[in-house]
């Protein structure tokens, strides 16, 4: 963590042709973070400011080195440490996990969604789910391989009248299937509205006959993130090798609809998959899924090399 931050700071000053020894940056960060328990973001800021003073650089020059924060779309965020402007709608607000965070959740525009963190220290106005805003001077960062944006003291937020339509983008996720949830397997759907029936009852239309369908509501987990996945009939058939007709036969033979779910669970649970498809709310709507082979030898060697330094 400290090493990465130090590298970022070194590179940032490097762009201004100022060469600061990285161990000097590291030791300052380490002191703040480890000895004085300063949060990482604050330590970063403090060390940057120290060197700005040391080299007599106006803060404004440093923070606008690459010109004004550029106005971009969510899917154009591909590097961290960039200052950007976004026009986006608040898709979700999540439960807050830390006192240093004011709000956290997802914002999105027509090109997709991205996680945001609004620091409590930033003292910015509260965001409302479903409303659209102009976010000025927010910073991109990456955490465990995913991009996010942070809103801090120099950011501005303005509500706008326009209602932004949030677009979907295909995302990939790999991990182990750790759960298959109730309502998976052979299900019935309402013929009127296509909702899944619960014990033969549609939430909207009451008790109806319904038509059979296959689907899987799976939980994929990579040890860091829990990802919900919805698998439709076509992909379920391909993944499990059980067709809708076969599933109906199985259920009829056993006089039990649940037998299909049991078979699927037995086959899929505890194994690794790569899934791909658009993100919708907390789900990935799975369009393709493939079982993952053993970890590549190259990756194992790379890990070993990292350990043996």
């Amino acid at each position: 963590m400290i090493k990465e931050t130090a590298k970022q700071i070194e590179e940032r000053f490097g762009k201004m042709d100022i060469k600061i020894p990285i161990n000097e940056i590291e030791s300052r960060l380490e002191k703040l973070v480890n000895e004085f328990k300063v949060p990482a973001e604050e330590a970063h800021r403090s060390v940057v400011n120290y060197f700005l003073k040391e080299y007599n650089i106006p803060r404004g020059d440093f923070y606008t080195q690459d010109g004004e924060a550029s106005t971009i779309k969510v899917n154009e965020i591909t590097t961290d440490g960039k200052w950007v402007n976004l026009t986006a709608k608040v898709a979700q607000l999540w439960d807050n996990t830390h006192e240093s965070i004011d709000q956290v959740g997802l914002i999105g525009d027509e090109t997709g969604t991205i996680k945001f963190i609004k620091w409590a220290r930033a003292e910015l106005p509260g965001l409302v789910e479903g409303k659209s805003y102009m976010f000025k001077n927010v910073v991109t960062s990456s955490y465990q391989g995913r991009f996010e944006i942070t809103m801090n003291r120099t950011s501005h937020i303005e509500e706008i009248q326009e209602d932004i339509e949030i677009g979907t983008v295909d995302v990939e996720f790999e991990g182990a299937m750790v759960d298959i949830q109730a309502g998976s397997g052979l299900i019935k759907r309402c013929t009127e509205c296509n909702r899944a029936l619960i014990k033969g009852v549609c939430g909207e239309h009451g008790k109806v006959e319904g038509t059979y369908d296959l689907r899987i509501k799976a939980v994929i987990d990579d040890g860091l993130i829990v990802q919900d996945a919805l698998v439709n009939r076509e992909v379920t058939e391909q993944l499990t090798g059980i067709t809708l007709d076969e599933a109906k036969q199985m259920a009829t033979q056993e006089l039990n609809q649940e037998v299909v779910l049991e078979k699927m669970t037995e086959k899929l649970l505890g194994k690794y998959y790569l899934i791909n498809g658009p993100r919708l709310d907390r789900y990935i709507l799975v369009e393709t899924v493939s079982p993952l082979p053993p970890m590549e030898a190259g990756k194992v060697d790379a890990l070993l090399a990292e350990l043996e330094v």
Binding site: Q92, L93, W94, D95, G105, E129, A176, V178, V219, D221, G223, L224, I225, V226, D228, R282
Partner: peptide, 12 residues
């Protein structure tokens, strides 16, 4: 405030 679905991660 909508609550985030908060299933616990399965650690390795």
């Amino acid at each position: 405030m909508a609550s985030q679905y908060s299933r616990e991660v399965a650690h390795r």
